[in-house]
Design a protein around this nucleic acid. Structure first.
Length: 464
RNA sequence: GGCGAGUUAGCAAAGCGGUUAUGCAGUGGACUGCAACUCCAUUCAGACCGGUUCGACUCCGGUACUCGCCUCCA
């Protein structure tokens, strides 16, 4: 029993898929004219968690995330770069896949590209023209007749009559109504395009998602997701196209994530205040970036800042510290605990990942206690459970020693050098020469090496 | 102007009509030669004004402020 907030009804609803036991979900992916920024990354991670959890709950899940690989921005950027648009998109798609892999975002079941579905789009546009929902004024374009669709505005809460009043919609004399949007864009024959009943041209932006979701998931499916700024007009238009063409309800449940902000302003291409995933990954471990997203609810706005990333790093370190040294991957998880129940309760309530993380921290404390008490069975079982629950969030799957920088870490200073200093310090300590021991420790600290003494000896780790 | 979301302790972030969220940071203690790690304890909340209630951070109304969409954007 999962409850999910539905943007369409503005309520949390029980998730009841069309086919019991199966989940079909479509998420609007990237327009590949540039590198992924942190806003994209949030969507990627948010729906990755949704899909992981649906699967863990036993739903046979089909996850579709499209790629927009032809549009005005892509063509313009390619022209600026002096390359073909397919060269540009191929490069950006590769980059996106690298970013996804780094962030632990699992591949969707289908990743349809707009250019591969042009025939399906033309079919759908023809249907809309035949049914009177669209018209071709003869200039090579085809437009959607917005006022013809009774449900227009139901997702975004717009009222047509009020939209026109202050509308900043460009005036186009070919349109019957300024609110009508383009389904097919006629272009010059020397530009990239496709043949169509209306001449050479390329599809409008919105139609691709209607066509691809129909092909991959059917006319009606369970969940449609995307970024906050897609709600209007993109998703509103998708509904208008699909429901008019298919005579069937489109998505039953709409999920929209919150915006990533910088200095309390939305991170966006237009404001040019964005950080690419690569920028950020150069400075923080990928798992820290993922944890950063997950530490906030997917619908809330989240503020990107160095301090917030650093805090995320510290938090993750605590979790990994609890796991370190326990055979969590060899031991059976302790099942049926209050921890597991609380985690489940958090996640089934609209994917409340911050609350779920809270449970993980409670577990960490219990694990640390058990370990201190020498009860490695209890600690190990809980650690195994924590590792298992972490997998649902895509976290805690690294080797703790690697994450914490113990022993095996990449170091600027030579690890042999560290071991030698360590031996010197140990000798000094046993001889009671504490001033000398502290001098060596300070030296190591300067190199970013932290020491942790214990009854089993001293271990070291890199702190940066 | 229209529509929508939000305002929780030093920072970040959840649930909940009465009982510790949680993390980071701080403070006191344990451990340690001293630290670090860890553990225990602990300080610091609910924008403002009203209302409902035995009792409200939690429900209702209003005010202020912030943010988003209305134009390409995840």
């Amino acid at each position: 029993m999962i409850r999910i907030y539905n943007t369409l009804t503005r309520k949390k609803e029980l998730f009841q898929p069309l086919t019991p036991g199966e989940a079909r979900i479509y998420v609007c992916g990237m327009t590949v004219y540039d590198l992924c920024h942190m806003g994209h990354a949030r969507i990627l991670v948010a729906f990755d968690v949704v899909v992981r959890f649906l699967r863990a709950q036993g739903f046979k899940t089909t996850y579709v995330r499209n790629i927009t690989d032809v549009d005005d921005k892509i063509l313009q950027r390619a022209r600026e770069n002096g390359e073909t648009f397919t060269q540009l998109t191929a490069r950006m798609i590769d980059a996106m896949h690298e970013d996804c892999a780094a962030l632990g975002v699992e591949a969707p079941d289908h990743e349809p590209r707009a250019t591969e579905y042009v025939d399906a789009m033309v079919d759908m546009i023809s249907t809309l023209v035949d049914k009177g929902y669209a018209y071709a004024p003869g200039n090579g374009d085809v437009y959607y007749r917005v006022r013809r669709f009774a449900g227009y505005g139901k997702l975004s809460g717009k009222v047509l009559s009020e939209m026109q009043a202050g509308a900043r919609v460009e005036v186009d004399s070919n349109k019957e109504d300024p609110l009508d949007f383009v389904l097919w864009k006629g272009t010059a024959s020397d530009e990239p395009g496709w043949k169509s009943p209306w001449g050479w041209g390329r599809p409008g932006w919105h139609i691709e998602c209607s066509a691809m979701s129909l092909c991959c998931l059917g006319a009606t499916f369970d969940i449609h997701g995307g970024g906050p700024d897609l709600r209007f007009p993109h998703h509103e238009n998708e509904i208008a196209q699909s429901e008019a063409a298919n005579d069937a309800p489109f998505a039953n449940l709409w999920m929209h994530a919150g915006a990533v902000r910088v200095n309390n302003e939305k991170m966006s291409k237009s404001l040019n205040n964005f950080f690419t995933v690569r920028d950020v990954l150069a400075r923080y471990p990928a798992e820290v970036v993922r944890y950063f997203f997950i530490s906030s609810h997917y619908r809330s706005p989240i503020n990107y800042s160095e301090t917030n990333l650093e805090k995320a790093h510290n938090g993750l370190e605590r979790l990994y510290t609890a796991l370190d040294g326990l055979d969590f991957d060899k031991v059976k998880p302790t099942l049926g605990t209050a921890f597991e129940e609380a985690f489940q309760a958090a996640m089934t309530d609209d994917f409340n990942t911050p609350a779920a993380l809270g449970v993980l921290f409670d577990m960490a404390r219990q694990i640390n206690k058990s370990r201190s008490a020498g009860d490695l069975d209890t600690g190990g079982g809980l650690a195994a459970l924590m590792h298992k629950l972490g997998a649902l969030l895509g976290l805690l799957q690294s080797n703790p020693k690697d994450f914490l920088g113990f022993d095996t870490a990449q170091t600027v200073v030579d690890s042999q050098w560290i071991e030698e200093r360590l031996a010197e310090r140990t000798a000094a300590r046993s001889a009671g020469k504490f001033a000398e021991a502290d001098r060596i420790r300070d030296l190591l600290t300067e190199q970013g090496v932290a020491l942790e003494d214990s009854s089993q000896g001293t271990r070291w780790r890199m702190t940066r």
